[in-house]
Simulated assay, not measured.
Amino acid sequence: MEGSHLEKFSSAVASIAVSSLIEELELTPKPGLVDQRNTGAHKDLTFQLMMASAESLKDTFKEMALVSYGRSPTQSLREEIAAIGRDGEKRMFEVTGGINTHKGAIWSIGLLVSAFSIGKGLFTTERILSTAGMLAGFPDRNCPKEDTNGKKVMKKFGVEGAKGEAQQGFPHIAYFSLPMLNSSRAKGLSEEKAQLNALFSLMAHLDDTCILYRGGTAGLSFTKEQAVYYLTSGDFNLLVKLDEEFIKHNLSPGGSADLLAATLFLDKVDNIGTLDEISKQHQFI
């Protein structure tokens, strides 16, 4: 691809990634999560801070798209993507004053951005997910040996976390959130309710390490039970009360939120393959 076209492609893909993060942020009301109504169970976050964090990642996703275009999923590419992601984390922390806002999203959406770009924008959703899984399967030999909250939770509770989800090709997106998003739209639900259903389908099935970190197995069971109840009832009015309950118990389904943003990214890039089509549908941020 000619240099200027590759630049435009990468900018457009990055804009889609950032807009997906912003769309997840703006979805309201979400239990325990930052949205336009409140900051959920997060005392150190604001809507404005989350917005600034999302926008700060545009260059990160653009660089990932640039280096991935037309290549194969290899150890070398995996480590290049990881290095770009770590630089993105640094920029994020500069914007947020050291608060982790989108570290999980950099991992999940970053892999999908890379996989989409490997396919030059022409891969099916299934191919994007499988390619992202292949990429995630390569170890990052340059990864700092730090004991993160996620690793502690994975060890303590025996769950696979964001790493395992990616290495398996994001099964919770493939089998739950994306089908739920599409089926909810097909039933004539509003986009807001379709996205909320997608979020709750993730909450109902995911062993969310953010929930486990804050609330242990009791918190995870509560989250899954409430998510199933909401999906069964379809009562939109339950959400404000549920938000209050999550705040009361200091629960925030951050892992589900990251996967919702990833779901929205895949939804946006589905079937729009070419640069011209991407550029028409997404203004560069």
Rank of each mutant, 00 (worst) to 15 (best):
S72C: 03
I81E: 03
I99Q: 04
E80C: 14
L45T: 05
F61A: 06
F47G: 09
L66C: 15
M51S: 14
F93K: 07
S53V: 01
K90C: 06
V67P: 05
I84A: 02
I81Q: 08
A54H: 05
M50S: 09
A65P: 02
S53E: 06
M50H: 10
A54T: 05
F47Y: 13
E89M: 08
K62N: 06
G70Y: 13
F47Q: 07
S76L: 14
G98S: 09
T96A: 00
L57I: 08
A54I: 07
K103S: 02
K62T: 04
E89V: 01
H42M: 10
S56G: 15
A82G: 09
F61C: 06
A65W: 06
T60A: 05
R91W: 01
M64K: 07
D44T: 15
M51A: 13
E94F: 05
T101I: 14
D44Q: 15
G40W: 06
A54W: 00
D87C: 04
R86C: 02
P73E: 04
Q48D: 14
G104V: 10
V67R: 03
A82H: 01
G70W: 00
I81Y: 00
K43C: 10
I84H: 02
S56Q: 10
P73G: 01
Y69I: 00
G40I: 13
S72V: 02
A82E: 03
G104I: 11
V67A: 11
T74E: 11
L57E: 07
F47P: 12
L77V: 03
L49S: 12
T96G: 10
I106N: 06
M64G: 11
R78E: 06
T101A: 15
G97H: 07
L49K: 06
Q75R: 11
A83G: 10
A105N: 04
D59S: 03
E63G: 13
A52L: 14
P73Y: 12
M51N: 15
M64H: 05
G97L: 09
Q48R: 15
K58H: 11
R71D: 09
P73A: 04
I106F: 08
M92T: 02
R71G: 11
R86F: 01
H42G: 01
A83S: 09
Q75S: 12
D44S: 15
E79F: 09
G70C: 07
L77D: 00
E79L: 12
A82M: 08
Y69V: 14
S56T: 13
L57T: 03
T60P: 02
G70D: 06
Y69N: 08
S72Q: 09
Q75W: 03
K103G: 02
Q48T: 10
V67Q: 07
I81K: 05
E63N: 15
P73M: 04
G85I: 11
I106H: 01
I106V: 02
V95M: 10
F47T: 01
G85D: 05
Q75A: 09
G97I: 05
S68R: 01
R86D: 08
G40S: 12
R91A: 03
G88A: 12
H42R: 02
T74Y: 06
I81A: 07
Q75N: 06
E94P: 10
H102R: 12
L57P: 09
R86Y: 02
D44M: 14
R78Y: 06
L45Y: 12
S76M: 10
K90H: 12
H42L: 13
K103N: 05
Q75D: 11
A83L: 13
